[in-house]
């Protein structure tokens, strides 16, 4: 079992039947990273909206399709023309949401806490490219999915949001109720490569701001 964070919290992968392993020769490494997740809606052509966001987050919303922006504290993924995913340090989601709503008061916008609805899994390892070819119909070659690009697509028979990290690994966001299916599929597909599950971690790799 992936270690749970506190007495009251069980993240989506807690119940997945995955033993923590310390295999250093695995072809695939997997870790669950835990953040608060906020869904953000608003009008990207409205300067007031953009400025309200910038005031709270100290970064500019990504406006280019399928891009992302990061600071030391926050990551923002472009999900659609008026749709973003904001990831915040776990435990701060309520406060950040409240701050955003205050800043956006009177504007047509929405800030919705979906922290419990999703899990973020980081995959790395020498066999990652082939594994992704088994599960994902999107072209995950680094030339097509470079660092910082965000893609919503399918993973086997469920949905996934992908982002390439600076170290070449891939962050995958999966829906809570599909996490068991996801881990079953991942174990099956990586059986020929070896799968090592790293303990869940509250921090995430530090990367610089990107647009």
């Amino acid at each position: 079992m992936i270690k749970c964070h506190s007495e009251t919290i069980r993240t989506p992968l807690c119940d997945a039947v995955l033993a923590i392993t310390s295999d250093t020769n695995a072809g695939i490494y997997m870790r669950e990273n835990t953040f608060g997740h906020l869904n953000l809606r608003g009008n990207p052509t409205d300067k007031a909206f953009l400025s309200s966001i910038e005031t709270v987050l100290a970064l500019n919303l990504p406006l280019i399709p399928c891009s992302s922006v990061r600071s030391d504290v926050f990551s923002v993924y472009w999900l659609g023309p008026s749709d973003w995913l904001l990831m915040v340090p776990i435990g701060t989601e309520s406060q950040v949401a409240a701050d955003l709503r205050d800043s956006l008061m009177g504007q047509h916008s929405a800030v919705v806490d979906i922290s419990s609805a999703q899990a973020l899994v980081n995959l790395s390892g020498v066999k990652l490219p082939e594994l992704l070819q088994k599960a994902i119909v999107y072209d995950c070659d680094p030339t097509h999915l470079p660092v910082g690009k965000v893609v919503q697509t399918t993973f086997a028979k469920t949905g996934v949001t992908l982002c390439r990290c600076e170290d070449g690994s891939i962050d995958l966001i999966i829906c809570r109720s599909f996490s068991d299916y996801f881990t079953l599929w991942l174990r099956d597909a990586s059986a020929e490569y070896g799968l090592a599950v790293v303990d869940a971690c509250l921090s995430r790799p530090k990367v610089s701001a990107q647009t």
């Binding site: 469920t158 299916y181 079953l184 099956d188």
Partner: peptide
């Protein structure tokens, strides 16, 4: 392919399943 047996269709679970 591998969409057979327990992987034929995703099975979705609630947080209280266990």
């Amino acid at each position: 392919g591998r969409d057979v047996g327990s992987l034929f269709d995703p099975a979705r679970y609630t947080a209280t399943h266990q």
